[in-house]
Design a protein around this nucleic acid. Sequence first.
DNA 1: CATAATGTGTTGCTTTTGCAACGGAAAATA
DNA 2: TATTTTCCGTTGCAAAAGCAACACATTATG
Lengths: 210, 210
Amino acid sequence: MNTNFDLENFILDFSNSCQKKQKKVFSKNEVVTTYIKNRNQLCILLDGHADLVRYDLNGNRTIVEHFSKNALFGEVFYTITTNNELLVEAKSNCTVLFYIYDDIFHKCKNNCKFHQTLSENLPQLILNKVTDLNMRIELLTKRSTRDKLLGYFSLLSTRKLSTSFELPFSLTDLADYLSVDRSAMMRELKLLKEDGFIEKVGNRIILLYK
Amino acid sequence: MNTNFDLENFILDFSNSCQKKQKKVFSKNEVVTTYIKNRNQLCILLDGHADLVRYDLNGNRTIVEHFSKNALFGEVFYTITTNNELLVEAKSNCTVLFYIYDDIFHKCKNNCKFHQTLSENLPQLILNKVTDLNMRIELLTKRSTRDKLLGYFSLLSTRKLSTSFELPFSLTDLADYLSVDRSAMMRELKLLKEDGFIEKVGNRIILLYK
DNA sequence: CATAATGTGTTGCTTTTGCAACGGAAAATA
DNA sequence: TATTTTCCGTTGCAAAAGCAACACATTATG
């Protein structure tokens, strides 16, 4: 994509200029927002890490998305079809900007610079999110736990431009992200080590194949 | 969402007004586009049905997305990370508009009405796509074939506002869409019938529970 | 209309995954 | 630092899903 709007600097420059937003700070494990109760919300994660989490009727926990710096999230990205509440949980201390989506979309009355630039660049920002979601779908459609793990590792490896990288999750959370049973995943990790596909040192994975 | 931009009428009104697009017609089973070879492409399906399909190394076929009238697709929504080509296959006769995304984004020089309206409404269009993808992720994170089937049926039921609806897929394709083995899915369908969750008459499903 | 191609429905067997449980390591907290 | 909580790593067993094969139905196609 060519128009590489620099969200980070943009936010630094303008995040204090608009009246129609809220900026809040959260500490680890606090609930940042919920999607059923907070409609039409668009949030930007300025700092920290957070997960979008769902619990199903059987008590399974799913990490629907994992957010890091500059991630966009909020109910505007969802059409809630089930009764299961979606929670955004802070995984570390977080700073979050909250908007009402319509305010961005219809521009705020003040016509502030922040809103103007944001709405101009919104297609690109949302498009980035679409590509993230498509990567996630690619992972989830893989048929076996092994392929999910290898697919995820290869993705991290591509992002870090290195065959060696830290997992951004605990292994427990990784299982919830790949939507598999934790113990089965651990078993598969062991097999991947035994079969010479990976090495694992603490939280660091080293890809050996190819 | 409040801004319900009427894509259909918009396209009817303006689809002939812009020079920077191509309109093509495809017949069933033809390849509409491929994502590795055609970068920076944004397409709108004016008519018909088409699937975005990927084949993995094991020969498994996955229906990544199912497109119907007014769907947006194209490489702009993807960051190709694997070597697996993604194909859009026409499932019926299709009419498709092709754009170069940058042309939309940077507005075309002619400043035509079509481009202007489209780029104004692009955030909303892409946002609709995001909600579709999130629904797909919700389906794929379900842990069992049974839950995937019930989840998908409940989704169709919500869309049609009826507990009785036609499947938009053949059963073979449905398995590829839910990312499960076809015969295992057939077995589960039988069990769902036996357990009184559904009835199935030809291609029509009737939800019985609740 | 005959024939080919594709889709449906089923089943036995194998493999993978999930579940439950546990001990010990590591990290958080009082 | 003592203690609680969370996470890691492992295993036996049960359940679910995948694979392969087949017969039959339905739909395209020459």
